[in-house]
Design a protein around this nucleic acid. Structure first.
Lengths: 149, 149
DNA sequence: CCCTTCCTTTGAACAGTTCAAAAGAACCGG
DNA sequence: CCGGTTCTTTTGAACTGTTCAAAGGAAGGG
């Protein structure tokens, strides 16, 4: 199951397998996310627009929502950032988010399956997933700590 | 360092210690959060309003922002929920969030100090905190899984 | 090739939050 | 105890990111 493919043929297959129709906006969106992981809706639209003149931001939102529902995309919402989307849905990994610029990087999880962590108290909850976000300063922002905050 | 105090005297001391002036809106907000941990801005306002007639939602936002900056409150933003605030700032604990109703519960962290977890790859980031959110269904929502989703 | 279903577009609306200026209250000094 | 300065609150509006709804258009099965 390729996860960062840009090959249109593979994208077609992925869409069909998920029970979705193959359309240009969807192919373009998946293509953009393959090259720009963790892009938000506005970023996806910015990169999709040149290939699909006249496409709207709302169209991107629709596509992203459909693909997310179908399990082809995973949506992450770090505090203070707009929602971001990524194609790595098959593994359980975590994120490293820069408190300065919002940059997001993937961090592999030691345990492959969710939930990789178990809470010490469950309060009766049926826990399905453990979401981990590591907050820190990326290399670029570490040098510019003065003016910030 | 009391953390769930409603005693006005202790709240005063806390504010002064943080270098903030003691005002009714702030005392009321801290009081509400002591009784309703993980309340969002609207909820805080709803509980503050009766004691302080004429207070606005914006006033609550200001107070919450000030107290958060001063370190008296911690702000958490689970995906899909408005920002929530809590008074437990001195320990490093995590959260259990219900995917059905958004209910939030505290989960103690095995390791007291942040970051309690270390990422397997740092990508050059200076990691300061590991935020963990356990997603699941609370007891009430577990019974009503049918209609949902 | 047609029909049904799903998708995209368009336009508007919405929630949560933030911004800015003026009025008011808290604290420090005398 | 009182005045002045500084910090807070109020008021009103604006903004971002996102969602909703109706109508036109395209994809895919027969």
């Amino acid at each position: 199951m390729p996860v960062t493919t840009v090959d249109p043929e593979a994208l077609r297959t992925e869409l069909r397998a998920a029970g979705l129709r193959v359309t240009e906006p969807r192919l373009a969106t998946l293509g953009v996310l393959a090259e720009h992981p963790h892009a938000d809706a506005a970023t996806v639209h910015r990169h999709v627009a040149p290939q699909l003149p006249g496409s709207s931001v709302q169209a991107v939102y629709n596509v992203l929502a459909d693909l997310t529902d179908a399990g082809l995309l995973r949506r992450i919402e770090p505090a203070g950032s707009p929602a971001r989307y990524e194609r790595r849905t098959d593994d359980n990994h975590h994120h490293l988010v820069c408190t300065g610029c919002g940059r997001v990087e993937d961090v592999d999880c030691a345990v492959g399956a969710a939930p990789c962590l178990v809470p010490s108290q469950t309060h009766g909850f049926a826990v399905s997933e453990a979401e981990v976000i590591f907050w820190g300063r990326c290399p670029s922002c570490s040098f510019a700590t003065d003016g910030e905050d």
